[in-house]
Simulated scan of single mutants.
Amino acid sequence: MEAPATPAPSTAELADWLTRTVADYVSSEPSEIEPDVPLSEYGLDSVSATTVCANIEDHLGLVVEMTLIWDHPTVAELSQALADELESARG
């Protein structure tokens, strides 16, 4: 018997995880990361963005392009893009 599939995280759960992850990389508190402010304004540079993308891959089991963060530069946009990608991958 096959184990039931784990439900994909919601957009809100993804946003929460991304907020905590980004805050860690830019040495801020998660409460300081606004969902609609570009991550580059918090000091997320290309090196830390690459590491965040690797964390996304590890956490979600997705292969993501390194340009993902630049194409979706806010927590809100990025979490929605990831939710859409997870839905496509599972669909």
Rank of each mutant, 00 (worst) to 15 (best):
V63M: 09
P9F: 07
L86I: 10
V22Y: 02
T19R: 10
D84C: 05
D45I: 09
A89I: 04
W17G: 00
E65C: 06
E34S: 14
H72A: 09
A89S: 15
E77P: 04
E32L: 10
L68V: 08
A8E: 06
D71W: 09
L86V: 08
H59F: 02
S10F: 08
I69Q: 01
A3I: 11
P38N: 12
L62E: 05
L39M: 11
E57R: 10
V75Q: 02
Y25T: 04
A8F: 05
W17M: 03
T67S: 10
A12F: 05
L39W: 05
M1Q: 13
T19G: 02
A83L: 03
W17S: 01
D58W: 08
A83M: 04
A5K: 12
A12N: 15
T21L: 08
V64T: 08
V26F: 10
V37L: 08
S79H: 04
S31K: 11
V64W: 01
A49W: 00
E57D: 10
A49K: 01
A12R: 15
E32D: 15
L44H: 06
E77V: 03
S10L: 11
A83T: 06
I56A: 03
P30T: 04
R20I: 06
V47A: 13
L18W: 00
D58P: 02
D45G: 07
